[in-house]
């Protein structure tokens, strides 16, 4: 009897689970309605085809509402995110994509800004280095202040340099 009770419980549990799964398989239930967040997650990666530079998720025009409805419809039909983007490209052109495909002249968008940033950084670094390396005479000319010609640290480096030169001779 002690052994039978747990077995009965396990059996009943299994029966309940199987019954639930069969019921869920038989009754698909109402079609899932995508939430606003789900629609907007896709809409934010698309731009309104008729208004300038407005992402679809924040666009308030009637046309944008239609496009968001279209995204919702496609999600209900079981379309994937990629399929929806492809559909929008076919319908309205690549200009609707927030992130243009990486090909052809589009590459300029991805290449130019980092290169410009890097080049700017290098230029700034070189300018700063040049300004710190300027001669005492230049410093006097630019700042009007006279700086000491050498510091104890300079002397240390000079002597080290002289020693190195002697070794080479």
């Amino acid at each position: 009897m002690k052994l039978k009770l747990p077995l009965v419980i396990v059996f009943l549990l299994l029966l309940t689970l199987t019954g639930t799964s069969i019921a869920s398989a038989q009754d698909p239930g109402p079609e899932p309605t995508p939430s606003e967040d789900e629609v907007n997650r896709i809409a934010k990666n698309l731009y309104c085809p008729v208004c300038e530079n407005i992402p679809l998720d924040v666009c308030e025009s009637a046309a944008c509402a239609q496009w968001r409805d279209q995204i919702r419809e496609k999600l209900v039909e079981g379309w994937t995110e990629e399929q929806i983007y492809d559909y929008f490209v076919v319908q309205y052109g690549e200009r609707v994509l927030a992130e243009p495909p990486r090909r052809g002249l589009n590459w300029l968008i991805y290449i130019v800004p980092p290169i410009a940033l890097l080049a700017g950084g290098v230029l700034l670094y070189r300018l700063l280095r040049k300004s710190t390396r300027s001669t005492p005479e230049e410093n006097v000319a630019s700042t009007g202040k006279v700086k000491p010609e050498s510091t104890p640290q300079d002397d240390k480096y000079t002597s080290l340099l002289e020693e190195e030169l002697k070794k080479r001779q």
Binding site: P49, A63, Q66, W67, D69, Q70, E73, Q91, Y92
Partner: peptide, 8 residues
Amino acid sequence: DYSDTNTA
């Protein structure tokens, strides 16, 4: 029909 949804 320019930049439209088919339904509309």
